[in-house]
Every structure is written in structure tokens, then in C-alpha cells.
């Protein structure tokens, strides 16, 4: 277009060319209710609660910058595991609610949860006509848990996740113990050897 720029009226022609070119291109309109949007991975749509993991530690409620998480709980005591022992107490969740009219989607609650009970879900269609209806209770939050996508795959050379490493070690240890037991049965004189190895593994863990 540079050689044309001196020619009178070339700006007008350029304007026409731009609109004509745009007409032949794909439109950018998102036909939302008819076609669902393609959300990027880890979209921040709504906060889902995996309540089986919740221990009512209240960290999320305390860290929330606008205090939009409501948690009620009570304590239950369980009989001692062994006769003569102490009674065990545990927290039982009564109410877990997030007021999405206050929530600013910062995600701090999800970051601080030590037991992986809170997750981002890409679900975003939960508009209400009354602002009070935006306070969603635990059953709704639990339902959203089903929409949480699987965590993204690790990088090819990444370190093993801690949970899997621990589980693998436990499995290896059990297998080794079983093998040692089988060995001991066939050669009863070797017991000391196995004990040494067991200690070593405990130290590793």
C-alpha cells in the first residue's frame, strides 16, 4: 500500500478494502446460549467443595478477604479404638456456604486449604434474579465438584507427586516384606538380615 499513499483518495480506497476484507473473514461473535464457549483450562468459574476432605479447620473462612465463606460445625466423640484408651473427637461439618455476591474469585481459599477440599470449577451459569440466592450451600457446592476437570498432566521430566511417591514406597515395602517372608520360610536362618533392611527403609521414609 505504500506506493499508493501519495495518490489522492487512496485513503478512501483503503477504508473500503478494510471493511470488505473483514466481511470475508470469520466473525468473532460468540453465540453463547446456543454454543457453549471454549473455556481455557483452569477457568475460574465457581468454587466447588469436596466436603469429604473438609476437616472444618476454618482456614478458608479466615483467609477469605471479603468474608464470604460461612462454616458451622459440631464436635462428635467416637469411642476409643482400644479398650481403656482416650475417646477420639472429630469435627463434623454442618454448613458450608459461599456467598458469590461477595466472592471476588481471588482463589485464596483454594490455595490455603490444606486438605484439598476446595477446587476451581469452570461452571459459570449460576446467575440468580435475587442477590440473596447467590449464597450457595454445601449440596450445591458439592454438586459443582463433579464439574471440576482432572488436574493438568505433569511435565514429561517432572518429579513424581508426593502422594504417588509415598504410595509407591509403601507398596514396594510391602512387596519386599512379602518376598522376605517367603524367603524366611524356605531358609529359616536368615532372619537378622531382613530386620536390618527393614530399619533402613524406615529411616528413609
Amino acid at each position: 500500500m505504500a506506493p499508493l499513499s501519495g495518490f489522492p483518495g487512496s485513503g478512501l480506497a483503503k477504508g473500503l478494502a478494510v471493511t470488505l476484507r473483514t466481511m470475508t473473514k470469520r466473525t468473532v461473535t460468540a453465540q453463547y446460549p446456543d454454543a457453549l464457549p471454549e473455556l481455557p483450562p483452569r477457568s475460574r468459574g465457581v468454587i466447588a467443595l469436596f466436603e469429604e476432605n473438609c476437616t472444618v479447620c476454618m482456614l478458608c473462612a479466615r483467609e477469605c478477604p471479603d468474608w464470604c465463606i460461612y462454616i458451622d460445625s459440631h464436635k462428635e466423640t467416637a469411642p476409643p479404638a482400644a479398650p481403656g484408651g482416650r475417646e477420639r473427637s472429630r469435627n463434623v461439618l454442618d454448613r458450608f456456604a459461599i456467598d458469590f455476591s461477595l466472592c471476588m474469585y481471588c482463589g485464596i481459599c483454594i490455595e490455603v486449604c490444606p486438605f484439598d477440599a476446595l477446587f476451581w470449577s469452570p461452571e459459570f451459569e449460576y446467575a440468580e434474579t435475587d442477590i440473596l440466592d447467590l449464597t450457595h450451600e454445601r449440596d450445591k457446592l458439592r454438586d459443582w465438584m463433579w464439574t471440576v476437570p482432572a488436574p493438568p498432566a505433569l511435565d514429561p521430566a517432572a518429579e513424581e507427586p508426593k502422594e504417588i511417591a509415598a504410595a509407591r514406597k509403601a507398596a514396594e515395602k510391602a512387596a519386599a516384606a512379602a518376598a522376605a517372608a517367603a524367603e524366611a520360610e524356605s531358609e529359616p536362618g536368615d532372619r537378622d538380615d531382613r530386620d536390618d533392611r527393614d530399619d533402613q527403609e524406615k529411616g528413609d521414609a
Binding site: 471493511t19 473483514t22 466481511m23 473473514k25 466473525t27 468473532v28 461473535t29 453465540q31
Partner: peptide
């Protein structure tokens, strides 16, 4: 329709 597509929109649908 033409105006919409020239502006990258779809127009009435």
C-alpha cells in the same frame, strides 16, 4: 447482515 459482517459480527440471528 452486510454491516454486521463488515464489523466482524453476525447481525440478527
Amino acid at each position: 447482515k452486510v454491516m454486521a459482517h463488515m464489523q466482524g459480527r453476525l447481525g440478527p440471528m
